[in-house]
Design a protein around this nucleic acid. Structure first.
Lengths: 171, 171
DNA sequence: CTCCTACCTGCGAATCATTCGCAAGTAGGT
DNA sequence: ACCTACTTGCGAATGATTCGCAGGTAGGAG
């Protein structure tokens, strides 16, 4: 599904200006990928963007689509649903609970809150179907990352090249 | 990190009774996997459970660990962080928003809510670090799935063997 | 407008997490 | 003790991403 032309334009402008500001080259493939994504009303996978594009530009590679999407993610212009490509984590806590997620290292910690368990669901959400529960994700920077903040950070998940011991504690 | 022995026991009982009730065989490897998971205070990956187990049971296979973890997931005794193993979805919506997630087909729809944007974060969550935002995931069954409900459902994500057209609309 | 060079792209090969296909093993009811 | 359907352990598939490089090409300098 696609969104209106006006909104698409708005997104395109926001994206291209941010990308230029970041000092990255504006190639045709990138612009087309931006456009495809900007016009999307849902949450396409890289493959979906690639296929939609393939009609217009038979030469783009899936790889370039991935690289461009991650570029936008790094610039904060798009987000991903759920954690990025990693192994699945299992949560054994039986009680109803919510999560604190560190935007820097990916750490996930549980916490309980009767208040959040009983959230009032707005009509804008209820209209999609039958609601069974609400789950809150509190996003921020964990104390661990806050302490050792000295790097300029920025990159997606800031993954260190090799062997670093402290990254990605999805715990 | 591990949780207390008392809580671990409580989880073990809950798991074994539910598993027996489901008519599944209780093998040694399953019991050990249950124990490992039940004692965990965080969100281990299958690989992590496998490695922790490997010391005690050098013969368990990673495959069995996966099968057992998914078995528990299907029984609702553990949950996964984020969607299960699939391709990453990109969300191009720039405005602050939340998600309605269909537990049946995985469909994800956006919605806005000023009220949910400004959620009060409980101290139990704030103590983990600096809070930057809250994101609410409303879980339920989308109208599409509610309509075509006639199958017994049950299995994780209810993925139809082959070619079904309507599954997994992560849109 | 042309030239240069750092940044990009396309591809095929490489990774990684996860799952399959099967032969051999074993809970647990009888 | 005995059956048998449900389980395991492997090694070989899969699928999604990413890498390594040999060309290409934006776009600032001249």
């Amino acid at each position: 599904m696609k969104i209106g032309a006006r909104e698409t334009e708005r997104r395109m402008e926001r994206i291209t200006s941010a990308v230029k500001a970041a000092g990255v080259k504006l190639t045709i493939q990138r612009l087309e990928i931006f456009r495809e994504l900007a016009a999307s009303a849902d949450h396409p996978s890289a493959e979906a963007v690639f296929e939609a594009l393939h009609a217009r530009m038979p030469t783009v590679s899936l790889d370039t689509v991935y690289r461009t999407l991650w570029l936008l993610t790094d610039l904060g212009l798009v987000h991903t649903l759920g954690p990025r490509h990693e192994s699945v984590r299992f949560d054994p806590k039986l009680e109803r609970h919510h999560h604190f997620v560190c935007l820097r290292c990916g750490l996930v910690r549980d916490f309980e809150s009767a208040e959040l368990d009983a959230l009032r669901v707005p009509a804008s959400a209820a209209r999609f179907g039958r609601v069974e529960a609400t789950h809150v994700e509190v996003r921020g920077v964990c104390s661990g990352c806050a302490r050792k903040q000295g790097r300029k950070s920025g990159g997606r998940n800031d993954k260190e090249p090799k062997g670093g011991k402290g990254s990605n504690e999805h715990e």
